[in-house]
C-alpha cells in the first residue's frame, strides 16, 4: 500500500492523526523522526530540509531533535528512572533540565526505581518525560495511551496538554480514541489506506459520521427468533446483546452472522454519569 500524503503543520499546533490500523499513521511519525526513510518525498522543518530523496538528503534521527513516545514505552530496563532521564541529556551539565521535567511530570517519588517496578501509566509518564528532557521542537506520540485504562488515560492526556502548552511544542499524536481527539487536537488528519481523506478541527471531521440526531451502532446478528408475524433479532453490539423487533420482510434478508446497523432517533435520551 503506498503512503501518499502532503501535509503542512504550523508551529505549536496540536495535530492528531486518526485512522484504521495499517493506514500509515505510525509510518508518518517514524519518517518525521528519521527512523524510516521514505522512498520518495521531502520533509522540511522551518528553513531546514530533513529529507529530500531527490538530492539524497537525509538528516539522521540523532540530529533532528524530536521527542518520540512509543506505544510500548521503551524505557531502558538497565537504568533507573533518573538514569533514563539523564541519558537523554547531551551533557551532564544540563541536569537542571532533568529536574525541571521531574517537576512537571511529578516523578520525584519514582526517581530511584527501575522501569520494571512501574505501572503502565507511570511508565508512560516517564517515557513522556524522557522525550521532553532535550526540549524538542516537535513531540511525536505514537498511540501512547492505548494500553492504559480510562482513568489513567485522562490523567496522561492532561500531562500531555500541560507539556504541549508549557513548552510550546508542535505535537503530533496518533490516536483512535474519539473523546481523546476532541479533547486534545487543534486539527485532525484522517488517514485511510495511505491517503488523507479529511482534515480540519475535530467537530468538522467527525460531524458527518458521528454527530447527528440519531444513534447508530454497528453490530452482528447472533440469533433470529421467529414469532407469528414478528421476529426478534438478537444483535451483539460491543459487549451488549440487544433484542430488536423486526417485521417478516425485514428479517428475510438477514441471517446469523450478518453485520448490521442499529439506528434510532435520539429525541430524548437519558444521560447517566458513570461513577469511576
Amino acid at each position: 500500500m503506498p503512503l501518499d500524503i502532503n501535509i503542512q503543520i504550523e508551529e505549536g499546533e496540536f495535530i492528531t492523526i486518526e485512522g484504521q490500523s495499517g493506514a500509515g499513521k505510525t509510518t508518518i511519525l517514524r519518517m518525521i523522526a528519521g527512523l524510516l526513510k521514505p522512498e520518495k518525498g521531502k520533509i522540511e522543518v522551518g528553513n531546514n530540509t530533513w529529507v529530500d530523496t531527490e538530492s539524497n538528503c537525509f538528516l539522521p534521527s540523532q540530529k533532528r531533535g524530536v521527542g518520540f513516545v512509543f506505544q510500548e514505552y521503551s524505557l531502558f530496563p538497565n537504568m533507573t528512572i533518573m538514569k533514563n532521564l539523564e541519558y537523554a541529556l547531551d551533557s551532564k551539565k544540563d541536569i537542571r533540565q532533568v529536574e525541571e521535567v521531574i517537576n512537571i511530570m511529578e516523578l520525584e517519588a519514582l526517581k530511584e526505581r527501575f522501569p520494571q517496578m512501574l505501572s503502565g501509566g507511570q511508565k508512560q509518564r516517564v517515557a513522556l518525560a524522557r522525550a521532553i528532557v532535550r526540549k524538542p521542537k516537535i513531540l511525536l506520540l505514537d498511540e501512547p495511551l492505548s494500553a492504559l485504562d480510562t482513568r489513567m488515560r485522562i490523567k496522561l492526556q492532561d500531562y500531555i496538554l500541560k507539556v504541549h502548552r508549557k513548552l510550546k511544542l508542535t505535537t503530533i499524536l496518533v490516536s483512535h480514541d474519539i473523546p481523546e481527539i476532541f479533547k486534545m487536537s487543534d486539527r485532525v488528519i484522517r488517514l485511510d489506506k495511505g491517503k488523507i481523506t479529511n482534515t480540519g478541527n475535530a467537530t468538522d471531521v467527525f460531524q458527518k459520521n458521528y454527530i447527528s440526531g440519531k444513534f447508530r451502532f454497528a453490530g452482528e446478528v447472533l440469533k433470529i427468533e421467529k414469532d407469528d408475524v414478528l421476529s426478534i433479532v438478537n444483535v451483539l453490539i460491543g459487549n451488549n446483546i440487544i433484542k430488536v423487533i423486526a417485521s417478516e420482510n425485514e428479517v428475510e434478508s438477514l441471517s446469523v452472522g450478518d453485520k448490521v446497523m442499529i439506528v434510532s432517533k435520539a429525541f430524548n435520551p437519558l444521560i447517566l454519569k458513570i461513577n469511576n
Binding site: G34, V66, F68, E72, F76, N78, Y87, R134
Partner: peptide, 27 residues
C-alpha cells in the same frame, strides 16, 4: 531486544556506538 529500544536512544541524540555500549549490551 525490541527495536524501539535503540530507536528511542537514537531519537535522544545518541549515536549507534553509544546505543550499543550503554543500552544494547547492558540489556
Amino acid at each position: 531486544l525490541p527495536p524501539t529500544l535503540k530507536e528511542a536512544s537514537y531519537t535522544l541524540g545518541k549515536s549507534k556506538f553509544q546505543t550499543l555500549i550503554k543500552i544494547l549490551l547492558p540489556n
